[in-house]
Each structure stands twice: as structure tokens, then as C-alpha cells.
Amino acid sequence: MQFLTTTATTQGYMSLFFTLGLMIVLLYFMIYRPQKKQEKKDAEMRKNLEIGDQVTTIGGVIGRVVAIKDDSFVLETGSDRVKIRFTKTAIGAVEKLNMDDAPAKK
């Protein structure tokens, strides 16, 4: 009878470890991996920032980039041309300046 109890306990532990391992794999594919993809996408967006791009910050400030330094940029907002310095980590979204649609100057 001792053998049956040991086997049942061992199978219970194996089932528990299998379930725990499956949960860890699911968490990796549902949480960690998409987060890393988003971080890479955000880093690429910050790296490709150019003067003239329209930027929306995570605080909701919208304006055009007028200067870029190492880890910061200057944003010009509104018609009164207010200039505010932000760190690049404050960028929420970037709309690229499209020069292809601009009318030709004479």
C-alpha cells in the first residue's frame, strides 16, 4: 500500500509542476513578449524623431519639433510659438512631416 501512496503523491506533484510551467509559458507570451515589442517600437519612434515632426506627448501637449538634443527635444506649440523642452521619453505619438504632398515653390 505504501507504493500506491508514493506514486499518487508523485503524480500529483508532476501535475502541479506541469500546470505551473504552462502558466509561466502563457504569461510570457501574453504579457512579457508584447511589452518588449512595444518598448522596441517606442524606442525606434524616439530614435527616428526629426525636426518638423508633429508630436503628442504623454501629457497631451501637441506641437512641432524645432530642436533635438541627445535625450531631449524642444516642442513649439500654438500660434503664439511657445517653446517647451521635453525628454524623449515623454513622446506619446509622432506624425511624420510629409514633404511629398507639399506644393512646389516657384
Results as ranks from 00 to 15, higher is better:
residue 11 Q to K: 05
residue 88 K to T: 05
residue 85 R to K: 15
residue 50 E to A: 11
residue 20 L to H: 05
residue 62 I to M: 12
residue 14 M to H: 03
residue 54 Q to L: 11
residue 102 A to C: 02
residue 14 M to A: 10
residue 9 T to M: 06
residue 32 Y to A: 15
residue 63 G to A: 05
residue 22 L to I: 05
residue 24 I to Y: 11
residue 48 N to W: 05
residue 6 T to D: 08
residue 31 I to S: 14
residue 33 R to H: 13
residue 65 V to D: 02
residue 97 L to F: 08
residue 96 K to Q: 07
residue 87 T to W: 04
residue 19 T to W: 04
residue 77 T to A: 05
residue 21 G to M: 12
residue 73 F to D: 02
residue 56 T to N: 06
residue 62 I to S: 04
residue 22 L to T: 13
residue 36 K to P: 00
residue 71 D to Q: 12
residue 40 K to W: 07
residue 46 R to I: 05
residue 38 Q to W: 08
residue 77 T to S: 09
residue 56 T to Q: 07
residue 88 K to R: 14
residue 89 T to A: 09
residue 93 A to Y: 03
residue 8 A to F: 05
residue 35 Q to A: 14
residue 62 I to T: 13
residue 49 L to P: 10
residue 40 K to V: 13
residue 86 F to K: 02
residue 55 V to Q: 03
residue 43 A to G: 01
residue 89 T to K: 12
residue 37 K to Q: 15
residue 21 G to I: 06
residue 59 G to Q: 10
residue 49 L to E: 07
residue 64 R to V: 03
residue 22 L to V: 09
residue 7 T to M: 07
residue 62 I to K: 14
residue 41 K to P: 00
residue 61 V to I: 14
residue 65 V to S: 02
residue 66 V to L: 02
residue 25 V to L: 15
residue 28 Y to K: 14
residue 67 A to M: 06
residue 8 A to M: 06
residue 61 V to H: 06
residue 19 T to M: 10
residue 35 Q to D: 10
residue 51 I to R: 05
residue 67 A to C: 01
residue 34 P to V: 13
residue 34 P to R: 14
residue 61 V to R: 04
residue 68 I to Q: 08
